[in-house]
Nucleic acid binder design. Structure first.
Lengths: 164, 164
DNA sequence: TATAAAGCCGACTATTTTAGTCAAGTATAA
DNA sequence: TTATACTTGACTAAAATAGTCGGCTTTATA
């Protein structure tokens, strides 16, 4: 998972989409409200649609709708949708593995951090971002010990960068 | 705070440095062990020195030493040291603030995430990374509610990217 | 005091990623 | 049948990152 303005744009657009109540929302409208170029939005929404987060209605009066309720869409999903598929660079894979230098020592650290970010963003729903004053349950998000003990990552998990 | 390979290189180099026990360590030696170019290491160590994490000994037999004990150096410090100073892009600052689109809605989310990452990396010391089998205290790292309630950030805090 | 080891420093280049554009489609409501 | 709006792929520009180069300064030691 990369944390760039691309992902932020996508989240802003989804927040906008969720706020509109009356039928399909055109990208042109989102573009005006969110100050994101139409062409760029098209690119983002292609990803969002392919990930099953939004559905499109073509033709006049068309636009985009959320494919699920806002409660069931996490911020992590949105960000993952608009970024490249994760290349999981585990120790075992590839020629530039962890056998060089101290990378293996630090590998676990980066992986744990990735998990940490993932858990955070996965625990926040689109609905929560739209209604910031809601009272949320306390969610335990892990601790430093994780980075010593954790071995397995959920499928399609977090990547900060190419982690060797 | 940016999470790039630059920061990872710096952490690897610091791990290497901490593992050596006998006097100053030359960059040439670290370069060989960690497969990082000498020139690049010079650049990194300039930052590390200016941040007070290492001290240098010039002349023959010289090299670098940790300026503090490994227990007192956090991973966050190392990463901050080699990255540009944080430009805190708060709502109030600059012309491209939060008055455009939904950015203000999501601003708090990104800031909270930044804090979250910061807390994680600040809770892990260089010593802990070097001795992964140590038993660590459980450290509470915050929850989703933070992102609703938190308003202030520590000086020189985390940045994921230019957060508008 | 000459020499070589080692850090110090600034400017430069290359590469990659990100952001954004363009042009030419297709589906469909009115 | 026409205008709206999504669809798609290729392209370009800008920025950030990664890495290089050349020359300088300090200092232990022979």
């Amino acid at each position: 998972m990369r944390l760039t303005s691309k992902g932020r744009y996508a989240v802003s657009a989804m927040v906008d989409l969720n706020k509109q109540q009356n039928g399909p929302v055109t990208l042109a409208a989102i573009s005006e409200r969110q100050f994101i170029s139409l062409s760029y939005l098209e690119q983002l929404f292609r990803c969002l649609r392919e990930s099953g987060l939004v559905k499109s209605v073509r033709g006049p009066g068309g636009g985009y709708l959320l494919a699920k309720t806002a409660k069931d869409i996490s911020i992590a999903e949105i960000i993952r949708a608009v970024n490249e598929p994760v290349r999981t660079t585990m120790c075992e894979n590839g020629v530039r593995g962890c056998h060089r230098g101290n990378r293996c020592d630090t590998h676990q650290l980066w992986e744990s951090l990735g998990q940490h970010i993932y858990r955070f963003l996965d625990a926040v729903s689109l609905e929560q971002v739209c209604a910031k004053d809601a009272v949320l349950d306390h969610i335990e998000l892990g601790n430093v010990e994780d980075y010593l003990s954790s071995r397995t990552l959920p499928e399609g998990s977090v990547k900060i960068e190419a982690i060797s």
